[in-house]
Design a protein around this nucleic acid. Structure first.
Lengths: 348, 348
DNA sequence: TTTAGCACTCACCAGTTAAGAGTGCTAACA
DNA sequence: TGTTAGCACTCTTAACTGGTGAGTGCTAAA
């Protein structure tokens, strides 16, 4: 059977209407809404065909029709029209995103929050995987007799500190020398690569003071690097699911929230997705618990290279056009913000 | 009317049973459970008295009795027995809390997570109010031609960085001089106090290079300080409320989650509570939305001085004895960890 | 190919009923 | 006077009922 022009229009109308109302739609209603001058009976026939082709389903004999995942897929790929964001919304996004860009983490968290606010869905965002991040600078700053702060700066501008408690006395010259040597050795290398190297240990190990210093500092240095490599996950708008009829069932809401809150697992799911704007609908999701959800993710870039993700999760019935536009606009905005100069900066 | 010994025992049994089962308890059941050899009828009389005194309520005519907030209060103050934590649990707490104490924030977040895991309730924790924190050290670290990192260290060991994008060229000597002067000027002063001072501006304003440098750095310095003063709130175990019968109603669960998620507001509520272990039961809460909840908070100390809070929120029917013990043990543990040496450290 | 008509199905609502749990009251008992 | 047994009463819950409305599927006519 072929998808005639008329079938497509009917399908589009059903999907569009269902996205808005969450109610199964009947032939009579549809006939009135569609100004095509065809009777309910004709529409019933077409609907019946569409159902046979797998685009519609029937909750029960005498309910209206409901779009299937396949219908949403067709809608997203072919039927959906580009949704132009109202200027007002664009303005809000720009304004909120450029305010307070001191830290990458804060900005991304902020973006997730904004996204959930605009879409009324649950949103998420992860920071870029730091695998590709290169070290720029290592410095040990003496604070007092027993405390030294280790500071690591990456090329993308991420800064991390750790306060190190010194068990043995140290001399400032040694610290400063160590800073220089480490920066010299590691500069331009990937963080993950550095973790594999053992240079620190071998270096100058014959001079005793330095050797002790290195011994003290080594575990801190490694754990700081490891921490920097972690991808962070931010969630927002968790309670939005309560205003979605699909999750009126407490059991469903519970499962949804619990799935989302398994952060480690959810992060992995996100990391495994391709780059660009990706929409997966219901059964297209590989994760069992997400079979009733649609997931839209998009990628943003830091320095044009490093990639983080952000998106929303909600019922398969969602305003794909609008949500996609919003996500795209936000990710574009982030990429723009962190383009020229790179990461963590404070540019007031 | 007086609270006879027998009335107390009956009340204790009702509270204890209700905490476990969440079901209203009837005279017949109670008579069997209580090995006091009194008939259901007698118990009914006693219950009736207790109800008149405000300790019990009646959901409807023919349901069993349910403890009122007043009964819980009596239970917590007088009837409750000290709950001794099993060694196994103590071990788990100690182990999980001492692992990875690199950052105060992480540790506190960790504690909240542990707490919700052990109590099956929703837990929260806030970092100490930094009002009392004193500055120890300011340093500007040159990273490259256009980037300088501002580092502030407090006496409690909190470290904060901000990357500053320099619009004008700078000289390292100037940066280093500025670090020294600012450290000299601000050392030992409260963070909040420093914000009020205007020293930076006046200092050396006649030398032009320095003056420009100060101008560039000032807004970053101020906003970093302001950020450091913010109290952070961590929540954990949000989905635990779904396993509590009281929140089987989706509407209630929604209200609960939304209240908790108003972080600013919830933080204020926490900050307003007294120090030590504080239990507020149902209507004792000043917040309208918490009238159905009980809140248990305890305080931990950093360096024996600065105070943060941590606790749980749940239905008025909760295992006060057990939960209190767990919270006490965890806060003790935190205070112990951050006792001798002070805040952010890495003490492997 | 489209349409009108009609029987049929199912969800939903309101009302009814019966069972079960628990109370309150009264009167009898120790 | 405190305690107990008995009994009528209340209220919740679940299961069943019939009526209504929305919507379908089929058939026959246009």
């Amino acid at each position: 059977m072929d998808l005639s022009e008329r079938k497509l229009r009917i399908l589009q109308a059903i999907v569009g209407d269902f996205i808005r109302s969450a109610e199964p739609i009947g032939s009579r209603t549809l006939s009135k809404k569609l100004d095509m001058n065809i009777s309910p009976a004709t529409i019933r026939n077409e609907m019946s065909d569409l159902e046979e082709m797998g685009f519609l389903t029937h909750p029960h004999t005498s309910a209206g029709r409901v779009p299937s995942d396949k219908a949403y897929r067709l809608y997203v790929n072919n039927l959906m029209q580009k949704y132009e964001l109202p200027e007002e919304e664009k303005r809000i996004i720009c304004e909120k995103m450029t305010r307070n860009v001191s830290e990458l983490e804060k900005t991304i968290q902020h973006a997730a929050s904004l996204l959930s606010e605009l879409t009324n869905l649950t949103s998420f965002a992860i920071t870029p995987n730091q695998e590709l991040n290169h070290l720029k600078y290592v410095n040990f700053v003496p604070v007092d007799d027993s405390t030294v702060i280790l500071m690591i700066v990456t090329e993308s501008g991420k800064v991390s500190n750790t306060a190190i408690k010194m068990k043995v006395p140290y001399r400032e010259e040694n610290l400063s020398l160590l800073s220089k040597v480490m920066t010299y050795n590691y500069k331009g290398k990937k963080l993950s690569e550095i973790l594999k190297l053992d240079i620190i240990k071998n270096f100058e190990s014959d001079i005793e003071a330095m050797s002790r210093l290195v011994e003290t500092i080594r575990p801190n240095f490694i754990s700081t690097l490891e921490n920097m490599l972690n991808v962070e996950l931010f969630l927002d708008g968790l309670t939005n699911i309560f205003s979605i009829p699909e999750y009126n069932d407490i059991e469903k809401a519970k499962v949804f929230l619990e799935m989302i809150n398994k952060k480690k697992h959810f992060t992995d799911v996100l990391l495994n997705r391709d780059n660009g704007v990706i929409i997966t609908i219901g059964s297209e999701n590989t994760e069992d618990l997400m079979r009733d959800c649609s997931l839209i993710t998009a990628t943003y870039h830091i320095n044009g290279k490093m990639v983080g993700k952000l998106g929303v999760i909600g019922p398969t019935r969602m305003k794909y056009d609008e949500v996609t536009s919003i996500i795209e606009y936000i990710t574009e905005n982030i990429s723009q913000t962190f383009k020229i100069t790179g990461g963590d900066e404070n540019d007031e």
